[in-house]
Amino acid sequence: MIRAGIVGATGYAGAELCRLLYAHPEVEIAAVSSVSFEGQALSDVYPAYRGFLDLICGNQEEVVEKSDVIFAALPHGLSQELAAQCIEKNKVFIDLGADFRLENEEDYKEWYGGTYLDKSLHAQAVYAMPELFREQIKGKKLIANPGCYTTGAPLALAPAVKGGLVEPQGIIVDSKSGATGAGRGLSQTTHFTELDGAFHPYKVACHRHTPEIEQTLSHLAGKPVRITFVPHLLPVDRGIISTCYARIMPGVTKEQIRQAYEDFYKDETFIRLLPDGKVADIKAVKYTNLCDISLHVDTRTGTLVAVSALDNMVKGAAGQAIQNMNIVFGLPEETGLKLVPPAF
């Protein structure tokens, strides 16, 4: 059995990791930690876990010592020192935060206000979106797990960008997220009375996930890709829908685009490419590691409209982290993640 530890187990992503790892047939949860709830049972923080996840929240040192793989569900800026400890002890470290996602330190300084404490450590990190970078993940110990917006948008656009079917400039990513994406800490905008019945964009064209999406798409395209990214806050608990607009290259047909997507994702367990005429919907992927993609072509303007839907807490966080763990430990990627969405 793989001994797994979760640092930051009482945040939304950490709690989701606990829920999914509990049912993983090859994993034993060895230890969990929480700064806010140290000494308390996880099931006291989340009563739904009573009788299943009654582990006592300890500290980071306990998690590192007792575990083969450590998942860090922490805000940005808090993972670098912990990662160094884990790598020094030859542990696998999977970071659900942003500290190892950006390759360029200048981008990290600009968008997150931090620096790389150990450049050699960052050189060991692999950006781990399995559907796009599977071979680079195998055998690695320092895993940068992509976030929710930065998973949905690239998966919607990857085949078109990699195949040169759309222009690399002028791409627009319009995304909507459930409130869990803001984390468990309360802010004015996530109060029920502020959120209920409301719907609005935020951090328009200046969201810190912008360079991460551009980094992924640029790797696929083999040239710089620039996007306009606008996120919105939905009055729902889970889910992210990304509607992506890209100008189709001259001469490229709707049939060519469809074939490119079918070829690209034909062997991907967690990607469901929907039939023509269907539209991706967050309700159809809730509680799963699935990403649904629907394709639409505006022939009048020559625009590809690619829509992706995923559960931001699973495929956008904990589920993808477990998928990456499975790759690192040589397990089938779907192990512990055969999750069927509810019908209603």
Score class of each variant (00 low, 15 high):
residue 18 C to L: 15
residue 19 R to A: 14
residue 20 L to N: 05
residue 21 L to D: 02
residue 21 L to H: 01
residue 21 L to S: 00
residue 24 H to C: 00
residue 24 H to K: 00
residue 25 P to D: 01
residue 25 P to C: 03
residue 25 P to S: 00
residue 26 E to S: 07
residue 27 V to T: 10
residue 27 V to K: 00
residue 28 E to H: 05
residue 29 I to V: 11
residue 29 I to S: 04
residue 29 I to N: 07
residue 29 I to W: 03
residue 31 A to N: 10
residue 31 A to W: 08
residue 31 A to D: 09
residue 32 V to M: 02
residue 33 S to T: 05
residue 34 S to I: 06
residue 34 S to K: 09
residue 35 V to T: 10
residue 36 S to Q: 13
residue 37 F to S: 12
residue 38 E to P: 05
residue 39 G to N: 06
residue 40 Q to F: 15
residue 40 Q to L: 15
residue 41 A to C: 13
residue 41 A to E: 09
residue 42 L to H: 06
residue 44 D to Q: 15
residue 44 D to Y: 08
residue 45 V to R: 13
residue 47 P to Q: 14
residue 48 A to G: 05
residue 49 Y to Q: 05
residue 52 F to P: 10
residue 52 F to K: 14
residue 52 F to V: 09
residue 53 L to Y: 13
residue 54 D to W: 12
residue 54 D to Y: 11
residue 56 I to M: 13
residue 56 I to S: 14
residue 56 I to E: 14
residue 58 G to D: 11
residue 58 G to S: 14
residue 59 N to F: 05
residue 61 E to M: 04
residue 61 E to H: 12
residue 62 E to P: 06
residue 63 V to P: 15
residue 63 V to T: 12
residue 64 V to N: 10
residue 64 V to L: 15
residue 64 V to C: 13
residue 65 E to P: 02
residue 65 E to I: 14
residue 65 E to Q: 15
residue 66 K to D: 11
residue 67 S to Q: 06
residue 68 D to V: 10
residue 73 A to I: 00
residue 74 L to A: 03
residue 74 L to I: 06
residue 76 H to E: 01
residue 78 L to H: 10
residue 79 S to P: 01
residue 79 S to I: 14
residue 79 S to H: 10
residue 79 S to D: 03
residue 80 Q to E: 15
residue 80 Q to A: 06
